[in-house]
Design a protein around this nucleic acid. Sequence first.
DNA 1: TTGATATATTCCTATATGGGTATATATTAT
DNA 2: ATAATATATACCCATATAGGAATATATCAA
Lengths: 114, 114
Amino acid sequence: MARARTTFDPFNALAEPKRRALLEALVVKELTVNQIVEIMKWSQPMVSKHLSVLKQVGLVSERKEGRYRIYKVNAAQLKPIQKWVIQFEQYWSNSLDHLEVYLNEVQSKEVKDG
Amino acid sequence: MARARTTFDPFNALAEPKRRALLEALVVKELTVNQIVEIMKWSQPMVSKHLSVLKQVGLVSERKEGRYRIYKVNAAQLKPIQKWVIQFEQYWSNSLDHLEVYLNEVQSKEVKDG
DNA sequence: TTGATATATTCCTATATGGGTATATATTAT
DNA sequence: ATAATATATACCCATATAGGAATATATCAA
């Protein structure tokens, strides 16, 4: 079987880098489709399709205004993702950040190997 | 073109629910492949393949011990994901909803530009 | 009405993938 | 050496895309 559906899972929706970029643009301010097209330099159908995925998982919402559709981020839908990630937070130590840990590992490895 | 490679992007690695389940199991304690097979009731190759993806993006690390490979979570690799999500945190805060934030930004921009 | 603009959708293709089965590789035990 | 165990990998297939091109739909303008 192929990959699981991206369409019903926010994790999956975010797996596509373009969609993350889209959210980053939209969080600054709500935009119409064509404004996104201009900003992103993507084709219009491409923008519409990615927006459609984001809408299906609730990460953006859309309202109609005349010919325009105005999209905005629904950031609350990111909360479940953060909650999932936070489960693991205790396992990356507070006192040392990852870089330090990494450097220490490299250092002790060099000491051991050298 | 098909979907972007899952193999080099932690977001993509987490897009697969089975891999998230795997991390949840591993964060409790490190496990060998066969222990995971028993716990998860997945086929051995399936476990190995998902572990391989997680390893490639650095979300797990592996050490060899005799015939066994012991896998453990490298939770620090989740930090970039959390950082990405946190960018949006102010927008799901209770005190301000997105519209208010937007209006404030527009207002200050107008003040600056006007 | 006719045309222009804004957006969504349909159709197509190429491809990365998830899962299964079989097999390869490594290590330990006899 | 041979067998058994632990794990990874190769191969195959079905499928869900992502993207492009063309088209449909909706709204506004003349």
